[in-house]
C-alpha cells in the first residue's frame, strides 16, 4: 500500500497528464480525446479516477459536482451509512492553473465496516474545452490529503507547447500535440499505441521479456527476421536511443487503413503501400524491445529520430 513516501511517476493519456505514486497502475481505460475514463489501482483498491468530456451546456462546475455527490449519497439507500461531504475545497493552489479553469474541489467520506474517502475536483478548461473530473480515493482512516493535493495539482488537461506526453505502464513518449491516438492495445508484455497525424501513421510497440523473444539471437538479427520483409534500406547504426544502440531502415509498408476483408480480390481494393521508416532498439536495462514505425507519403527518418529521442524506456 502506498503511504505517500514512494516514488512518483508521470501518466499521460489524451493530453491529460499527472504525477502519481509509482505503484499505482492503470486498471481501466476507455474513450478518446473528447470523452473518456481512466482509473489507477494499487494492489488493494482503485486509487484514482479521472473522467473527461467535452463541455456542453451552461452548467457550472458546482452544479455538476452537486449532481455527482447527490448520486453518491443516494446510491446506498436509506439504510446505508451516511456520506459526509465537504465542498468548496481549495485543493488546487497554482495560480497559473487556475487562470484558465473554473475549479470546484470536494471531499467525501463514507462510514460503516469499510469506510472510504476521496478528495476530488472538477473543472472546465477554456483552452481545451473539456470538463475534467478527478478524485483520489482512499480508506476511511488513511491520511491522504498530501498525496491527493500533489496529484491534483500536477494534473494538466492539455498539451503545453508543441508536444504532449503519453505515458502508460512505464512507457513514456513525447509526441507532437496534433498526433491523435487511433488504437491502443495493452496486453501482458506487449503494449501497442497507434497514432494518426494527418495521413501519416505512427506505431509504437513495446515488448517485455525481450530475451524470450530474441531466443538467443542478437537484436539486429531479430529485427531483420521480423521486419526484413518491408525494409529495403537498412541503417545498422541509427544512433543511441535511451542509451541503447538502435537499428532502423526504410522501405514500403502496407497501410492497414487500405486492407479490406471483403472483396479484397478487386484491384481497387488491394492494400496500398506507403513509404515506411522504422526504428527499433533493445533496452537491456528493462529487458524490453521497442519498435517505432512511421508510414507517411515520404520517408521521414529525421522525424522518427526526434520522436525516438523522447522515449523513456527504463
Amino acid at each position: 500500500m502506498n503511504r505517500g513516501a514512494s516514488k512518483w511517476a508521470v501518466t499521460g493519456w489524451h493530453h491529460l497528464s499527472f504525477e502519481r505514486p509509482e505503484d499505482w497502475s492503470i486498471g481501466a481505460v476507455s474513450g478518446d480525446f473528447s470523452t473518456g475514463y481512466l482509473r489507477l489501482d494499487d494492489t488493494e483498491m482503485p486509487r484514482f479516477e479521472l473522467r473527461w468530456e467535452r463541455t456542453r451546456g451552461r452548467e457550472s462546475p458546482d452544479q455538476v459536482v452537486a449532481r455527482y455527490l447527490k448520486n453518491l449519497t443516494g446510491k446506498g439507500g436509506k439504510k446505508a451509512p451516511p456520506v459526509k461531504i465537504r465542498r468548496d475545497l481549495a485543493l488546487i493552489k497554482d495560480e497559473t492553473v487556475l487562470a484558465d479553469r473554473t475549479v470546484e474541489g470536494f471531499h467525501w467520506r463514507t462510514e460503516g465496516a469499510e469506510p472510504l474517502q476521496a478528495y476530488g475536483c472538477l473543472w472546465m478548461c477554456e483552452i481545451c474545452g473539456r470538463t475534467v473530473f478527478a478524485q483520489v480515493l482512499g480508506r476511511g482512516g488513511e491520511s491522504m490529503m498530501t498525496r491527493a493535493s500533489r496529484l491534483l495539482n500536477s494534473l494538466d488537461d492539455h498539451a503545453r507547447g508543441d508536444t504532449a506526453t503519453w505515458a502508460v505502464y512505464g512507457l513514456r513518449i513525447d509526441l507532437p500535440s496534433d498526433c491523435v491516438l487511433k488504437q491502443h492495445s495493452f496486453m501482458t508484455g506487449r503494449i501497442e499505441l497507434t497514432f494518426q497525424r494527418g495521413d501519416a501513421r505512427l506505431e509504437l510497440l513495446r515488448m517485455s521479456l525481450a530475451d524470450m523473444h530474441l531466443e538467443g539471437r542478437t537484436f539486429p538479427d531479430w529485427f531483420q527476421d521480423t521486419y526484413g520483409g518491408e525494409i529495403d534500406v537498412w541503417i545498422d547504426d541509427a544512433g543511441l536511443t535511451g542509451g541503447h544502440p538502435s537499428i532502423g531502415g526504410t522501405g514500403q509498408g502496407v497501410d492497414p487503413e487500405t486492407v479490406h476483408s471483403r472483396m479484397a480480390w478487386l484491384p481497387w481494393r488491394r492494400p496500398r503501400k506507403k513509404p515506411l521508416s522504422c526504428r527499433g532498439w533493445h533496452c537491456t536495462d528493462g529487458n524490453r524491445i521497442y519498435v517505432i514505425r512511421h508510414l507517411d507519403e515520404s520517408h521521414r527518418l529525421g522525424f522518427l529520430d526526434e520522436i525516438a529521442g523522447t522515449v523513456v524506456c527504463h
Binding site: 505503484d23 497502475s25 492503470i26 486498471g27 494492489t43 505502464y169 512505464g170 501482458t188 508484455g189 517485455s208 521479456l209 528493462g286 529487458n287 524490453r288
Partner: peptide
Amino acid sequence: EFKLERKEAEVSTLT
C-alpha cells in the same frame, strides 16, 4: 526477475 511492470506481472501470474 523478469523486469515487468507490476500490472503485467500480476495479470500474467494470476492467470
